[in-house]
């Protein structure tokens, strides 16, 4: 029987900065994901229920929202932070698996490449609503 890692052990395995940034990004994501889910799922719910609006999410609705600088900032921050948090979390899990842990540097580089590539792809997708 073994215990989940203590805070000290996590820092030792992941490295201080990945450990610290996982907490900072997680904390920020509580608010960003909260706003994101509220805006996409609940703010327009009344209009859909009353029949004033066909669906909660359609191209024109997203386009109007992304015409505001605040939502451009929120969506791009969300994309970057959620990719960092998600892939850093995967790294934490993989570091406990021998074959990945033995090639930690290569794995970390691979995850960064995947993250940056996905950010560019996601940003390109978002720009369809903005430009």
């Amino acid at each position: 029987m073994s215990a989940p890692l203590t805070s000290q052990q996590q820092k030792a395995v992941a490295g201080f900065w990945p450990w610290f940034l996982q907490r900072v990004s997680g904390f920020l994501l509580i608010f960003l994901v909260g706003v994101h889910i509220w805006m996409t799922h609940f703010s327009g719910l009344g209009d859909v229920v009353r029949g004033h609006q066909e669906e909660l999410v359609l191209f024109e609705i997203v386009k109007q929202r992304l015409a505001q600088g605040l939502f451009i900032f929120i969506d791009f921050s969300l994309l970057a932070l959620v990719l960092y948090h998600g892939l850093n979390g995967m790294r934490n899990i993989l570091l406990e698996w021998g074959p990945a842990a033995r090639h930690a540097a290569g794995m970390t580089a691979g995850l960064w490449l995947l993250g940056i590539g996905t950010f560019i792809y996601g940003a390109w997708a978002l720009l369809a609503f903005i430009l």
Partner: peptide
């Protein structure tokens, strides 16, 4: 790497607090 494979696979078991 300061951690061996054995110490890295810490979560194999269900743990009592």
């Amino acid at each position: 790497m300061a951690f061996s494979f054995r110490t890295l696979s810490l979560h194999a078991g269900n743990f009592q607090d």
